[in-house]
Write a protein that binds this DNA or RNA. Structure first.
Lengths: 96, 96
DNA sequence: GTAATATATGAATACTTGCTCATATATTCA
DNA sequence: TGAATATATGAGCAAGTATTCATATATTAC
């Protein structure tokens, strides 16, 4: 398959979004539905700062979306490609 | 989705395999069929050493397979999960 | 045997990344 | 207003990664 350099970079960036165990766990939580930063941090045993930094990257790649409500920010998956990639990858890991 | 720590790490490792533009380009070439290290290097404008190093990682993750023939080593994709991940990701990049 | 070719690999280095810590911004409540 | 809570962000650092260069191994041709 012929691939332009730009597309190769974009693809690599997309997969990079899922190339860290903590990000994978964040995504896995968000597959269930939207969650606040604190809820994610508590659920994953990460600091809020670390979660926030990671969410920033995911946001910039348009993989998650933020919804502000009062002083909380609820994050959710921005499109279903992510969860499809996620489950396909999980498939590979489980019985690949 | 509840995810064990081990599965999160395995998933992240899988996606890490596709988290570099040069590896993405290597995979994109191998989707066409098997190729030697030199052919890959020539086709991608990389040194043979760099390609060999990357192939080593992909091999260790069982994403590519090596077939030795004379003094050449031909690489091919080791399973179709990879190309499915690849094309799903490309889908996202193109009209996501 | 030697020379040439194809690939692999270790060390060194430049670059990237994910975290912590400190601080800033925004919102709610008293 | 001021204190408390939720999130965001920048700097700095430790760990990881991809490359290059030099060298090693393996195969073929002579």
């Amino acid at each position: 398959m012929k691939l332009t350099e730009l597309k190769a970079i974009k693809l690599a960036e997309l997969f990079s979004a899922l190339s860290d165990a903590n990000r994978v766990r964040i995504i896995s939580q968000l597959i269930e539905g939207e969650m606040s930063v604190r809820a994610l941090a508590d659920g994953l045993g990460m600091t809020e700062s670390a979660v926030s930094h990671q969410l920033r990257g995911l946001r910039q790649m348009h993989l998650v979306r933020a919804r502000k409500s009062g002083r909380q920010v609820f994050y959710s998956l921005d499109d279903d490609h992510v969860s499809r990639l996620f489950t396909l990858g999980l498939d590979h890991v489980q019985h690949g």
